[in-house]
């Protein structure tokens, strides 16, 4: 007997490859990364950056893109199925809402892997001749995996509670903007004790700071443990809350 979660993940994967939606996803991601890579290599000012800086920039873009894709996917995961009238037929089966949410999160991981597979050649092309390319790529993969799980889970959590995809997306985009906002404030403010605490508590800021420290400052792993633990901890809490809070009756 096949496991329901596995069956659902397989269905989502097939949908990605066979539907127009999936084709659009691959095309959009490739196009965005091509544009940014071209800009980093050909733009007069950007091409003067050293390779580590260019690698850090494209890694940040990949991270932001992945965060956005995860949150859009999460927003659609339940609210979209509900709006398309496909959720009820799934819930009639022996699948529990927890199974459905777990499958959606599982597919979120596959989606990230695909995105990373598409992004890796661009990252290698941009940062191949600079320092810390392999380390940067490994950190990006690990951090990206955690963040994609985190933002998919946030998206799904909101998507379960808000009935329309549009409203769910709006709330989730607001969450993304809020989590990205501390890195936009001035470096002086970020160096204050409150700024430092805010940076540590925010997984997205932790991710960007870790990439900065590893790629540009060549800091060792031992100096990243606190930030990585924070990202992993927040991800674990949000994923657990999303799965535990999934109820069929929430339909």
């Amino acid at each position: 007997m096949k496991n329901g979660v596995y069956v659902l993940i397989r269905k989502e994967l097939k949908e990605l490859f066979y539907s127009v939606k999936g084709l659009f996803f691959f095309l959009a991601v490739s196009l965005i990364l091509s544009l940014f890579s071209l800009l980093l290599i050909t733009n007069t000012e950007l091409s003067l950056l050293d390779n580590a800086q260019a690698l850090y920039m494209i890694s940040g873009i990949v991270l932001a893109l992945m965060m956005l894709i995860s949150v859009v996917y999460g927003s659609d995961a339940i609210a979209g199925e509900r709006e398309r009238y496909t959720l009820e037929t799934l819930l009639i089966t022996p699948l529990t809402m927890k199974d459905i949410v777990t499958a959606k999160l599982g597919f979120g991981v596959f989606l990230y892997m695909l995105l990373f597979a598409i992004a890796a050649p661009y990252i290698i092309a941009v940062g191949s001749s600079g320092q810390n390319m392999t380390t940067g790529l490994l950190y990006l993969f690990a951090i990206g995996l955690m963040l994609s799980l985190l933002y998919s889970a946030v998206g799904i959590f909101v998507s379960q509670r808000i009935r329309s995809f549009k409203n769910s997306l709006l709330v989730n985009l607001a969450i993304v903007l809020l989590s990205a906002s501390p890195i936009l404030i001035s470096p002086a403010l970020r160096q204050s004790s409150i700024g430092k605490i805010a940076d540590y508590l925010n997984p997205f800021a932790d991710a960007i700071n870790t990439l900065d420290a590893v790629i540009i400052d060549s800091e060792p792993f031992s100096m990243q443990t606190l930030r990585l633990a924070m990202i992993a901890g927040v991800t674990l809490i949000i994923v657990a809350t999303t799965i535990a809070g999934a109820k069929k009756e929430a339909l």
Partner: peptide, 21 residues
């Protein structure tokens, strides 16, 4: 209710057969 438009009917029924085990 709606169907998964990209599927064929056999595939659709197989999906639910698998979900019911």
């Amino acid at each position: 209710f709606e169907l998964y438009g990209w599927m064929q009917s056999i595939e659709y029924l197989q999906l639910f057969a698998d979900l019911y085990g």
